[in-house]
């Protein structure tokens, strides 16, 4: 859109507070991902297998089949743990933000679908009350919003790679 006037011009359209809050949103989501990933990496006990095996709803059988073999469980556990960690770091740094956000949205979609709070689905309880919308969906919506904003270029390393 603003390729002529360059990124600098685009960024000028945001007030300081807006810039701060957009970056803040990106950073807190990054923090959340990083800690989720870290816990999985560092915990001796963690495996996605149990959660996926208990997945309710129409996609339950799909998730369950993903963990049918021990080697698949290993792959999924590694992808989850490293993926979350990496996405977390990138979001905090604002580096490769768009790719990181895309992966984040995908993760969140998977989490959402593996335990969908839909009418008629006996979903796994957690804290809070949900009908259709839960915190995974809200966080995904936030990630999608960030995806259409140049958040990495505001306060983040993408700024250095941006064509000016």
């Amino acid at each position: 859109m603003a390729d002529k006037s360059g990124l600098g011009e685009t960024l000028k359209n945001y007030s300081g507070v807006q810039t701060f809050l957009i970056a803040f949103l990106r950073v807190v989501i990054g923090w959340h991902f990083l800690y989720e990933g870290y816990v999985k990496l560092s915990s001796d006990a963690w495996s996605a297998a149990g959660y996926l095996r208990a997945a309710p709803g129409p996609f339950g059988p799909m998730f369950e089949s993903m963990v049918s073999s021990a080697s698949m469980v290993g792959v999924i556990d590694a992808v989850m743990a490293w993926g979350l960690t990496l996405v977390g770091i990138l979001l905090i740094l604002g580096l490769f933000t768009r790719s990181a956000l895309l992966v984040a949205a995908l993760f969140l979609l998977m989490f959402y679908l593996s335990n969908p709070p839909w009418v008629g689905v006996q979903f796994m309880p957690g804290e809070g009350s949900y009908m259709v919308v839960n915190k995974n969906l809200v966080e995904m919506a936030a990630v999608l919003v960030l995806l259409v904003l140049p958040s990495g270029a505001m306060w983040g390393f993408d700024r250095l790679f941006a064509r000016r």
Partner: peptide
């Protein structure tokens, strides 16, 4: 724990993930 043999765990949250799954 898959790949790690037996482990002692004390955190309630880890507990939950593990109990649900298993193993």
């Amino acid at each position: 724990v898959a790949g790690k043999g037996i482990e002692a765990i004390t955190a309630a949250t880890a507990q939950w993930t593990v109990a649900k799954g298993l193993l």
